[in-house]
């Protein structure tokens, strides 16, 4: 058998062997990249120095634990959150293009954040709340506009792409109208950046993402069942209305929480679930490989962003856009050469 059954008492879960191996490997790669991230500074720290600092000893303890660690942790957690959000929406739309960054949810969350910093005081609580609201309003608008065809399919993706274009224009307009200092801050942030992230900024987002991920665990089986199509989902016992509402909330929550802290980091949500799926050779769009691939991609991208023009640190979004562009070309090339099997 090429599957492993994990048991704990009367509980048992069946996992494909390849999915398990790939997941463990991805986790290993993510941790290795995170370690590199902790070592990187104006000069590279020795591994022993990093371990000592993590344990709270040595001269670099402050730099590594208080400056580099929150950034590296943010790259891991936010990457995973974006991977999950992408997997959720790609499952929901049954389309590899149906990810939150493509259908305008990042842009909508960013609109919310921009409103918070230009019209309100821009405290982190306001930023988080208005990002989530922006994302939810965008999701609601896309949903209402594509109601004729239900919540799935190409129509929703196309409407989302249009929504993304509109919101990107709105965001530019807000920035142009803003005070100069606000506009400069917003522009640096608009590419999506982890520069200067500290523990105070990430504590609450980490907690929120953790809670959303736990909620998603309870929904994942139903979500994969729903990938069989609406009819079979309903007749095999999925409460489809409630499921959709909850997973949209989780997906928007993950996207908006990341956007509130780091700005709209695009392409991770698009690419990670599909790369994870192909690596794992699994059916549908599995969640764990998506999250781990997201963590690997964002951590690697952030490292590249810091190294490329060192000592100038680029916004990580610049690098994810470059990686994402390559991925899109590859995906389109592959899709074009494949005869269309689906209606």
């Amino acid at each position: 058998m090429n599957a492993v059954v994990l048991r704990a008492g009367s509980r048992s879960v069946r996992i494909e062997r390849r999915t398990l191996l790939i997941s463990l490997s991805l986790a290993g790669v993510a941790l290795a990249l995170a370690f590199l991230g902790l070592s990187h500074g104006p000069s590279w720290s020795a591994p022993s120095e990093v371990f000592a600092a993590l344990a709270g000893h040595g001269d670099s303890a402050l730099v590594i634990r208080e400056w580099r660690l929150p950034r590296v942790a943010a790259a891991l957690v936010f990457g995973a959150a974006l991977g999950l959000a992408g997997a959720i929406f790609q499952n929901l739309t049954r389309n590899p293009l149906g990810s939150p960054d493509i259908i305008g949810l990042d842009a909508g969350a960013y609109t919310g954040a921009l409103v918070a910093i230009t019209l309100l005081n821009g405290t982190s609580a306001q930023l988080a709340t208005s990002s989530v609201l922006g994302g939810l309003l965008t999701a609601a608008a896309i949903y209402l506009l594509s109601l004729d065809s239900g919540l799935s399919g190409l129509r929703l993706v196309v409407i989302g792409i249009a929504m993304n274009a509109i919101l990107t224009a709105v965001n530019s307009w807000i920035v142009l109208r803003a005070e100069l200092d606000v506009a400069i801050a917003a522009t640096g942030w608009s590419a999506g950046s982890l520069n200067g992230v500290d523990w105070d900024e990430v504590r609450l987002p980490f907690l929120v993402i953790g809670v959303l991920a736990l909620l998603l665990v309870t929904l994942s089986q139903a979500m994969h069942q729903a990938a069989l199509g609406d009819e079979l989902a309903v007749t095999s016992g999925v409460g489809l209305g409630r499921l959709r509402l909850l997973i949209v909330l989780v997906g928007v929550g993950c996207t908006a929480t990341v956007t509130a802290v780091a700005g709209p980091i695009v392409f991770i949500a698009l690419a990670a679930p599909q790369i994870g799926r192909r690596l794992a050779g699994a059916a549908g769009v599995p969640l764990v490989p998506a999250a781990l691939t997201g963590a690997v991609l964002l951590t690697a991208a952030d490292l590249i962003a810091q190294l490329l023009l060192a000592p100038v640190a680029l916004p990580v979004g610049v690098v994810t856009t470059a990686i994402g562009g390559c991925y899109l070309i590859w995906l389109l090339f592959k899709e074009v050469r494949r005869p269309w099997q689906r209606a």
Binding site: R11, V13, S236
Partner: peptide
Amino acid sequence: GLVAPENIVVRRLVARGRYPHQSMLSTWS
């Protein structure tokens, strides 16, 4: 007019029929 999830093998697709008999914590028996 059903469309199977991409890349799924027959055994896994047939197993999806077990959904109403499974609980969240016990997906295989």
